[in-house]
């Protein structure tokens, strides 16, 4: 594990490290997303790219739970479904504009996060995987059987998004809406990851007992990760409804949860650039493999296996080191000079 080339001190990896620490990385990604339609803007291309963006949002959301906090979640699509259905039902049956459904979706996601996380997060991780798997199926089957959700045929006629009278429901408008929302979602998840809460998530992932010994209530902090993931998933669900204008239970099968998880693992658990890359890879590759027709998922599977063999920590693993800022080093020198004795609080 220590001989992995991503961590060995070669020139390439030093360059890679620097690239990763580049604060403009996010802006570069944003620019790429903003300029992509200028290369190709067919309806098909726009729809593939929009789906890729949604996938990115789902992956960074799941990354909070799986990557940061180390909790295995096999039913993440449930939160996605809750977001899509809550906003879809409010929009089609009660005529709400999609934007107005956002607060309700957030509340629904938080409640769902607490309902599923509350009792299960006391369990050990392997139980959690099974329970979340069941939860994903329960949500889908419930949607399949309720009348308000349209039963097996689902909901159709979900309107597009309008903002201050501007109609963003066309493919271009929707794409750029997604660029903005997903960019904020990625930034937000990354910032949470680099905060007190984000550190607590990682402490739990690394050693739950040691985290408890530091006074971290691991149950509450895990629940916070769950709720965070649920909100990200729920909000992505709104965009999903807006994109397809129709949703039905088969849109939220276990395959979705599995693919999102795959994006996180493939990209590099806990790494924002990695997870973004993984999500794009997972969502776009099958489209690029359309030539292979029936064999496309077969080839897709083989490629995934190859990647995981050669880059076990993911395409773009989480940054392992922290460069001490110049300020910190200055501080340290001052301490050395003063032979740190009385400086301790």
């Amino acid at each position: 594990m220590t001989t992995n080339f991503a961590t060995s001190p070669t020139r390439a990896s030093a360059l890679f490290d620097r690239l990763q620490q580049n604060r403009y990385l996010g802006l570069i990604g944003l620019a790429v997303a903003a300029l992509a339609p200028f290369i190709t803007a067919t309806n098909y291309a726009l729809s593939v790219m929009t789906s890729a963006l949604l996938f990115v949002m789902l992956a960074v959301g799941l990354n909070i739970v799986v990557g940061y906090c180390g909790l295995l979640d096999l039913g993440y699509a449930a939160f996605f479904a809750i977001g899509a259905y809550v906003s879809g039902v409010l929009a089609t049956r009660y005529g709400w504009p999609l934007l107005a459904t956002v607060p309700v979706v957030i509340v629904a996601a938080v409640v769902a996060g607490i309902v599923i996380g509350g009792p299960t997060l006391r369990l050990r991780s392997d139980y959690l995987a099974i329970v979340t798997l069941g939860f994903g199926e329960i949500i889908r089957i419930t949607a399949n059987n309720l009348t308000i959700t349209g039963g097996p045929s689902g909901i159709y006629g979900i309107p597009g998004i309008t903002l201050l009278g501007i109609d963003l429901s066309g493919p271009v408008g929707l794409y750029y809406t997604c660029v903005v929302v997903v960019a904020l979602a990625v930034l937000g998840a990354a910032r949470l990851g680099r905060s007190r809460l984000g550190r607590a998530w990682r402490f739990i992932r690394e050693d739950e007992d040691a985290a408890e010994a530091m006074g971290i209530n691991t149950y509450r902090v895990k629940l916070a990760a769950y709720i965070g993931g649920a909100i990200w998933g729920g909000l992505a669900g709104i965009l999903f409804g807006a994109q397809l204008s129709a949703i039905s239970p088969p849109s939220f099968t276990f395959l979705w949860s599995a693919l999102i998880l795959m994006a996180v693992v493939l990209g590099g658990m806990g790494s924002t650039p990695g997870v973004v890359l993984g999500a794009i890879f997972i969502s776009v590759l099958p489209e690029l493999l359309r030539e292979a027709a029936d064999y496309r998922y077969f080839v897709f599977g083989i490629l995934l296996i190859v990647v995981m063999i050669f880059r076990r920590q993911g395409l773009w693993p989480a940054r392992a080191v922290e460069r001490q800022s110049r300020r910190d080093l200055r501080e340290a020198e001052k301490h050395d000079a003063g032979k740190a004795k009385e400086v301790v609080p």
Binding site: R196, R199, A200, R202, E206, A224
Partner: peptide
């Protein structure tokens, strides 16, 4: 220790309860 985290992050764990910041 939190092996896969930096030394600084390990020690920051001790400050968790005193830090005044929310999400």
């Amino acid at each position: 220790l939190f092996g896969e985290l930096t030394v600084l992050d390990n020690v920051r764990a001790g400050t968790h309860l005193r830090l005044r910041q929310n999400a």
